[in-house]
Amino acid sequence: MPERLVHIVDDAPALAADNGGTLTMVLVLDGFLDAGNAAGRAAQHLVDLSDGPVLATFDVDQLHDYRARRPPMSFVRDHYESYDAPRLVVRQLADAGGTPYLLLHGPEPDNRWEAFCRAVREVVERLGVTRVVGIGSVPMAVPHTRPIAITHHANDPELLSAESPWRGELRIPSSAQSLLEVRLGEWGHPAMGFVAHVPHYLAQMDYPQASAALLEQVEIAGRLTIDLSGLRAESEDREAEITRYLDNNEEVAEVVAALERQYDAFERAEESGSSLLAADQPLPTGDELGREFERFLAGLDGPDAPDGDTDSQGEQD
Results as ranks from 00 to 15, higher is better:
H144G: 05
A141V: 08
R131N: 05
M140W: 05
G128S: 11
A119N: 07
L127D: 05
E125R: 14
C117H: 09
V124C: 14
E125M: 06
G136A: 07
S137I: 08
P143V: 06
L127E: 01
V120Q: 03
E114T: 12
M140I: 03
G136H: 07
V138H: 02
G136K: 09
G134R: 07
R112F: 06
E114R: 15
C117L: 07
N111H: 12
E122P: 00
R118S: 14
S137V: 03
R121E: 11
A119K: 12
V138I: 14
R112C: 09
S137Q: 08
V132F: 02
R112Y: 06
P143T: 08
G128M: 09
E114S: 13
N111T: 14
R131G: 02
F116T: 07
A141P: 01
P143Q: 04
R131S: 00
R112A: 15
D110R: 02
D110H: 15
E114M: 12
T130E: 07
G128N: 00
V142G: 08
V142R: 10
T145Y: 07
L127C: 13
V138Y: 11
F116M: 11
F116V: 11
A115V: 07
S137T: 12
V132L: 14
R112V: 00
S137N: 00
M140D: 07
F116G: 12
